[in-house]
Nucleic acid binder design. Structure first.
Lengths: 117, 117
DNA sequence: CGCGAATATTGACAGCCGTCGATGCGTGCG
DNA sequence: CGCACGCATCGACGGCTGTCAATATTCGCG
């Protein structure tokens, strides 16, 4: 069974060929599903878009709770999930935590989802 | 709140720009998350790859339960989820049901996930 | 040192999800 | 007609998940 969270941060660029090549092994499917699951949430998608839309490319948590309309612990939770999936990076500057997207991860995902032909 | 399944089949090609443009509205985020959530499961990812790997492009349910190691009801359930998300089509021929992938849907997803720059 | 601010962690709770066995439904065949 | 087969649906169950309030942690500053 594939149940059970993937705890450690996923390898920078994870898996596999275009998804529509060979019949995806169990392990690859689990890994890819974990990363997609991290994305498959409205709040996290909006977080990603907010990070990407920033001129500087990184945003501190305090600027994210407002636009999302979620509590600070919840935002921290979502950012942690995204971080563990290797989709964002965290940089702490004194008391503030600045998050930014990892373009390579999204590039890899886009290629995996590339349609046949 | 965004809770609650998206019941009807999603529009053939759903949303939005590259995800890394404008700060994604709530509705768009919910729609996109629904489609990603349909993909974010190991069994369903393997189903997709099995469908895509078929020479004819379509596979009947009876040929899918074996490779996946899941019961027939479970496989039917996953195919239903994929169908409601607009990721696969179903065609019934007498007693058999043949499923195939919808390339346009994956193309759209790949473009939405395209990284910044 | 001690306070305040920004985050992270914990605990709790309600709702969703993947899985299976049992059952229903439609179709072709003898 | 009646049976067998392929598939979908139902009901149930255990585990996971998103959310918040409360609390812990870390850091700068006076």
């Amino acid at each position: 069974m594939y149940r059970g969270r993937v705890r450690t941060t996923l390898p920078v660029i994870a898996c596999c060929e275009p998804l529509t090549r060979a019949p995806l092994g169990v392990d690859q499917a689990v890994t890819l599903a974990a990363r997609l699951k991290a994305l498959a949430d409205p709040a996290r998608l909006r977080l990603i878009s907010l990070l990407a839309a920033s001129p500087t490319g990184d945003v501190c948590v305090c600027e994210l709770t407002g636009p999302l309309g979620l509590s600070q612990p919840t935002v921290s939770h979502h950012l942690k999930v995204l971080h563990e999936a290797g989709l964002v990076t965290r940089e702490k500057r004194s008391t503030w935590a600045y998050y930014s997207v990892v373009p390579e991860a999204f590039d890899a995902l886009a290629q995996v989802l590339a349609p046949p032909r």
